[in-house]
Design a protein around this nucleic acid. Structure first.
Lengths: 158, 158
DNA sequence: TATGAAACACGTTGCGT
DNA sequence: ACGCAACGTGTTTCATA
């Protein structure tokens, strides 16, 4: 992936609805050339999708928290992500190095809803939890600074 | 905000490029009615923007980490978010309850780049850092389950 | 991989209800 | 607040280089 693709990715990361016409103007290519490139980036999975960025306060989910989890039985098979996937309040699940095994990012309506969610997490995955409540979010969803590092050839599908 | 708006928000959260035509079909409204509602949701800040979801591995940022920071001098004014905003590797900054003051989510190209970033964070904001490296991400960017809770009247601009 | 043009679909606006 | 219809713009495909 080279210069123009990186520029397209950056532009779309900032405005996922930018038109092909505008992308063409910004890159100096024709509309059909950028169209081709965007479709290729989507097909290769570099662009994985598009999403509206939602104000969680405005939709009744004003409470964000990070929940670190640790298995009660360290010998049991670790399938926590699948066991927790049904809980819609969980926005993200990261496997991490360190004392705990996963960090979950969750969004709920209230402290009581968080309490309820934690019980569901513990019950669903047989884990203990440690919760860090978010007080405010100065910024979030900042677009990546796509520099020069390319995807390796072996990552590229036929 | 009621039923149809919540449905629109959910659909756009899943596919930020969905056409007004498709939104109209899904909601049972006319294209212009949906158009009106989307513009209003944008204007009110319920929909804060649109973004392409990027595969960080494919753009040369395969290393994700959470960096918790704590001021060296607890008496100094806390302006860490502004002091750190210039670092493009920082995707998000959350003020949190607990022992530390902020949790940063960062994306870098390599362990060396992370080491360098941590030095920059410490120097820029006069903080100590505690870093949790992400090993893998089972899921991320899941759309919120927009239930029934409305935005309060006083949140609504004229 | 690029371009330009043609065919088509969509976004956008104004007006009537 | 919604629907309809007209208009302009954006998307998509194709022929060509």
């Amino acid at each position: 992936m080279e210069e123009i693709d990186r520029r397209i990715v950056t532009l779309l990361a900032h405005d996922g609805r930018m038109s092909f016409t505008d992308l063409a103007r910004e890159t100096g290519l024709s509309v059909s050339a950028v169209h081709q490139r965007v479709r290729r980036l989507e097909k290769r999975g570099v662009v994985r999708g598009y999403a509206a960025i939602i104000d969680h306060d405005a939709v009744g989910l004003p409470l964000t928290a990070f929940v670190s989890i640790k298995p009660i039985d360290p010998a049991a098979p670790d399938d926590a992500p699948e066991r927790l996937a049904h809980l819609a309040a969980i926005e993200a699940c990261h496997s991490v190095a360190g004392d705990e095994s996963y960090i979950l990012k969750v969004r709920v309506a209230s402290p009581v809803a968080l309490e309820d969610l934690l019980q569901q997490i513990r019950a669903s995955a047989n884990v203990s939890t440690r919760t860090t409540v978010v007080l405010s979010t100065p910024y979030e969803h900042r677009a990546p600074h796509v520099a020069s590092e390319p995807a390796s050839d072996q990552d590229r599908p036929a």
